[in-house]
Amino acid sequence: MAQVWKCSGLRWPAGGGPVLEWDGGRRSALPRGKRVAFAVPEGGVRRCVGARGHACAVRAVVPGRSTGARCEECARLDRAHSVAADTLADDPRPYRVYLAWFGPGLVKVGITAAERGPARLLEQGAVCFSWLGTGPLMAARRTEELLRAALRVPDRIPYAEKRAVRSALPATEAERAAEVRELHARAVALPGWPESLRPAPCDVVDHARAFGIEAALEAFGEVVELVPGGSVGGELVAAAGPDLHLAVGGRGVVVLDTRLMTGWELLPSEPAAAGCALPVREFRREPDGLF
C-alpha cells in the first residue's frame, strides 16, 4: 500500500516562501511553478486534528467543508486558549495593532504578538499592511476596538471575499497602499488611544510579489471540500494566506484552501497529473453589458 501523508497546514516561515507541513515534521517547500498533486484514498474519512498539540480523544469524524477540521469539543478547547477568544488578559508579551488590506474596500484592523512579526499578515493573505502601534495586550485590544468603532472597519473578513477580489487588484504598490495610508492617518489622529500603546508611523508593506499576485490572477473557482476518491494536480501559480492557486489544465486556475486538506490521509499523485476531480464552486462572473 502506498504511503499516506497527513497535512498539518500551510505555513509562512520568516524570510522564506510558503511551505506545507506534514505530520512527523516533514515540510514541502512551495516555490512558484511547483507541481502539486495528491489524491484522497477511496473510502477515506476525515478525522478531527485535535487541539493545542493533543490528539482528539475520540478521533471524531469531521465535515469535509470545515476549515478548522476539529470536532466541537476540540474546537472549544483550541479557542479557549487563543488570543482571539479574549481569555488571555495576563499575557505579558507585547502586541502590535495593524491595518491589513486585501483589496479595494476590504480593510481590517487586528492584533498579533510582536514576536511573530508579519507572519500573521501572510497567513491571512493580506496584500499589504501597516503597523499602527505596539503595547501590552489589553492596550492593543482597546485600540483595536476604538478603531473598529471610529473607522468602521471590521476585525474579520471572510476568505471567500478575499479570493473574489484577487483578480482585480490595482496594478501598482502605490495604488494598493493608498487606502491603508488614508486610514492610518485617520487612526493616529483619533483621541482616546491607551497611553501604554506606542503609535507606529505608516510604513506599508506589500505582499503581492511574495504571493505571486502582482499581475491579474483569474481563477474559475474554488475547491469547497475534499472527498474520498477525489484528486487535484496542477502547477502552483500563486499562494496567498492558506490558498494555493493551481493551474489545472484546460479550465485554468482553481483555488485550493489548504485548511481543507487537514484531517485527511492523502496519497501522492503522479507529478504530471493535471486536473481537478474535487467539488468546485465557480466564481460568479459579472455580465459585460445589458445584452
Rank of each mutant, 00 (worst) to 15 (best):
L290N: 05
G110E: 10
H54W: 03
G249Q: 02
R198D: 04
Y98M: 10
A215V: 05
E115I: 01
G33K: 03
G249I: 00
A185L: 13
L260G: 04
T87I: 01
E161A: 06
I157E: 15
T67Q: 09
A126G: 08
V45E: 15
G125P: 00
A210S: 11
R181V: 15
G250H: 01
D257P: 01
R79Q: 09
D78C: 12
P136L: 13
V204D: 06
C48E: 10
A178V: 00
C74G: 09
V188I: 15
A37V: 00
R198S: 08
R181L: 13
R181H: 06
R141T: 06
L278E: 04
I157Q: 11
R209W: 01
G289E: 09
C128S: 14
R186N: 05
Y95C: 03
D91E: 10
V36Q: 07
P104S: 12
K34D: 13
A187L: 12
G33Q: 12
A69Q: 05
D203A: 15
F283T: 11
P92H: 04
D257N: 15
R120P: 06
L190S: 09
L183D: 08
V97E: 07
E182I: 05
W5H: 14
F129K: 02
P158Y: 09
L20C: 03
S196I: 01
V223S: 07
A149W: 08
A177Y: 03
D243N: 14
V61Q: 14
G221Q: 13
K162G: 02
P170S: 03
A187V: 13
L121K: 05
V205K: 12
V107C: 10
G212D: 08
R32A: 04
G44I: 01
W131C: 00
A240C: 04
L122G: 00
L169G: 11
V232F: 07
A114F: 07
V109S: 08
R156Q: 09
D288F: 12
A37H: 01
V248D: 11
V255E: 07
G233L: 09
L217D: 12
S8H: 02
G241L: 02
E218D: 14
V232K: 02
V165K: 10
E21K: 15
E218S: 14
G110N: 08
W131S: 04
G212K: 10
G125N: 03
E282L: 13
A208E: 08
L132Y: 06
D203Q: 13
R181Y: 05
L190M: 12
V254W: 11
V97L: 14
G250P: 06
L266K: 07
V248L: 09
V58M: 02
W5N: 07
F129L: 00
T87S: 14
R47K: 08
S66E: 07
A113N: 06
A240Q: 08
L10Q: 01
E115R: 15
P170M: 05
H184C: 10
A2I: 00
